[in-house]
Design a protein around this nucleic acid. Structure first.
Lengths: 134, 134
DNA sequence: GTTTACGTTTACGTTAACGTAAACTCTTGC
DNA sequence: GCAAGAGTTTACGTTAACGTAAACGTAAAC
């Protein structure tokens, strides 16, 4: 029993992905250059699998959260503890905990900023009441 | 009836602020250069008021959220609709709404990333169970 | 058979956000 | 009176994350 309905393409071209995520092909190749994606090739041409596409999504989400590409790479690496000896796993757990702490801080920052935006909006609306002939 | 208890200093030196926020004096002067802070001067020397300190805090919070200095400046400008004609106030409200949308997106991103970190931690702990002699 | 669309590599250019260093001034403790 | 510590300006250097352009290959469309 498959949950998948709108079946996804088996592969994507670089310009398809660029269009979907509103970035340039240069950007995608840049990420590959930095070792964040490793698409297959047919001849010279890059062929992107659904997994490659997911990696790209993770990178862009990281960007929205203000992460550097290096940080995004570390996060992506957290998804796969396959190659883990004990020491590596310990380091991974520590890294996860650290990221979590950072996200908590971001949550607090967003909460307070949201509140302040509410106040700023109220003040702006009040000022509008003054200036508008109603 | 003042709510303030641990009364704050009337002013700060640049190195005091640098120490408090764990940044360099160069950074603070850079923000001034970009027009984000405008401390008073006694002779050549910069004197920072509590308001200057708040501005600095806002900038650093913006950084934690991945905002550029330009974005932080815009946000700080949202706090003061004093000089508003109607058109400016409308633009301000639109800008506030836009920021709010961005923060909502960041919230969603953080939620999903948190969940994935949970799963990654679970997998890592499971892998540890395998490798550890217990 | 040649334009058009898409792909490639290579390489230099650009912007933001500081780092780093030099050269100088001013005050304060000894 | 002078060395130490904190402040200043000026200016060149650095890194990340791409932009931009040139020069080329290939395949479909007309």
């Amino acid at each position: 029993m498959k949950a998948k309905v709108a079946k996804e393409p088996a592969s994507y071209s670089i310009s398809e992905l660029a269009r979907e995520f509103d970035i340039t092909t240069r950007t995608i190749r840049f990420y590959e250059d930095k070792g964040l994606i490793s698409p297959a090739r047919r001849g010279q041409t890059r062929i992107y699998s659904p997994e490659d596409r997911v990696r790209l999504k993770l990178i862009l989400r990281g960007k929205r959260l203000g992460f550097s590409l290096e940080e995004s790479r570390e996060i992506i690496d957290m998804y796969d503890p396959a190659r883990g000896n004990v020491e590596q796993l310990q380091r991974l757990l520590a890294a996860i905990e650290q990221k979590r702490a950072q996200l908590h801080q971001q949550l607090r920052d967003i909460q307070s900023l949201m509140g302040e935006l509410d106040e700023a909006e109220a003040r702006a609306r009040a000022a509008l009441e003054q200036n508008t002939d109603h």
